[in-house]
């Protein structure tokens, strides 16, 4: 089956799941209420899934490695630290904490700023090494985690419970207002990443060949780093941390579609992301009856897949 046909099948699957998610159990009486709940949630799932998939795929291209995602750079931990810090400094009833818009803007800004600072820092060094940059990010992540766990010790139990609820954000309590705020950002970033696809194909030939073919590798790396940082930061703030999700969908797409071209693979991983998130959500609700969360499930699946990739020696 050619790739175009496979993409169509994936598209059909996604549409089917979308319809099922929206329409299941809908009656003439309840439709208004259900739709007002379901549509923002669906939108959040689709946008976050597509953004994470795109960002992870292009990130793997610039790092020349299939088992990395920008999520490992400590975004999750920074998000948690930001939330804890806000509550501790301004109180749990402050506008900065309660107002979803302000809170969201602060959280994403801090994550993107962190990525930009890391990147600037890396770019001013004589010996550039993207893997070192990632590891530095990871170490910072552990540092953030320690700081936030200490800060949460200083809180009283009720405040702590409130923060905790914010940290385990999932698709069940996506904030409707936020979805509409995020949509233009995530759609914009995904489109920008997609538009870079011809140059990204050339980058698969290694840096020197890409330079010889007229790709400005430094500039492209910079663009992708910033764009994927924004995508991951917004998605994390919207639906909570799913570290291994990007790894899972990009590699599934590679296994399913033969073409090396980013045009095909980016569409493929986006569709796979939508399918697997919707299916995963259904499994969490119906098979596990909420005994687990989507992020735990995907970290488990994605993590096992990561180990499988390592054992198969597919690490480039």
């Amino acid at each position: 089956m050619p790739d175009s046909a496979r993409l169509l099948v994936l598209l059909a699957f996604s549409l089917g799941l979308v319809i099922l998610t929206v329409a299941l159990g809908l009656t003439a009486d309840n439709y208004a209420y259900f739709l007002s709940k379901r549509i923002p949630r669906l939108l959040a799932i689709i946008l976050a899934g597509v953004a994470i998939a795109q960002a992870s795929f292009v990130f793997q291209t610039i790092t020349q490695n299939r088992i990395l995602t920008p999520s490992i750079m400590g975004f999750d931990a920074l998000y948690v630290t930001t939330q804890v810090l806000l509550v501790l400094m301004f109180g749990s009833l402050s506008h900065l904490v309660v107002n979803p818009y302000i809170n969201f803007v602060i959280a994403t800004t801090s994550m993107v700023a962190f990525a930009v600072i890391l990147y600037r820092f890396y770019f001013n060094r004589p010996h550039r090494n993207l893997i070192t940059l990632l590891l530095v990010g990871l170490v910072f992540g552990q540092l953030f985690a320690s700081i936030s766990s200490f800060l949460s010790l200083l809180m009283d139990p009720t405040t702590f419970a409130m923060v905790q609820a914010k940290l385990f954000a999932s698709f069940n309590n996506v904030q409707t207002d936020l979805v509409y705020l995020c949509s233009p950002v995530l759609i914009g970033v995904s489109l920008l990443l997609f538009r870079l696809h011809p140059s990204l194909d050339v980058l698969l030939l290694d840096q020197d060949n890409a330079t010889s073919l007229g790709v400005d590798v430094a500039k492209l790396t910079h663009q992708i780093f910033i764009l994927s940082a924004i995508a991951i930061a917004v998605a994390t703030a919207l639906v909570g941390p799913i570290m291994f999700f990007g790894l899972l969908v990009t590699n599934l797409s590679r296994a399913l579609l033969q073409s090396y071209q980013h045009k095909v693979q980016l569409q493929g991983s986006a569709l796979i992301a939508i399918c697997s998130l919707l299916a995963g959500q259904w499994i969490v609700e119906n098979v596990f009856t909420f005994a687990t969360t989507l992020s735990v499930l995907f970290n488990l699946l994605g993590g096992s897949y990561f180990i499988y990739l390592l054992i198969r020696n597919r690490v480039a």
Partner: peptide, 27 residues
């Protein structure tokens, strides 16, 4: 190819095992 890769993979591997632990602990 890169010395830094081993700790990177190791930490991610640790995260995977942690995810499994969390899965069991959550359940």
């Amino acid at each position: 190819k890169n010395v830094v890769f081993v700790p990177l993979i190791g930490i991610v591997f640790g995260n995977v095992v942690e995810a499994i632990t969390t899965f069991i602990a959550y359940k």
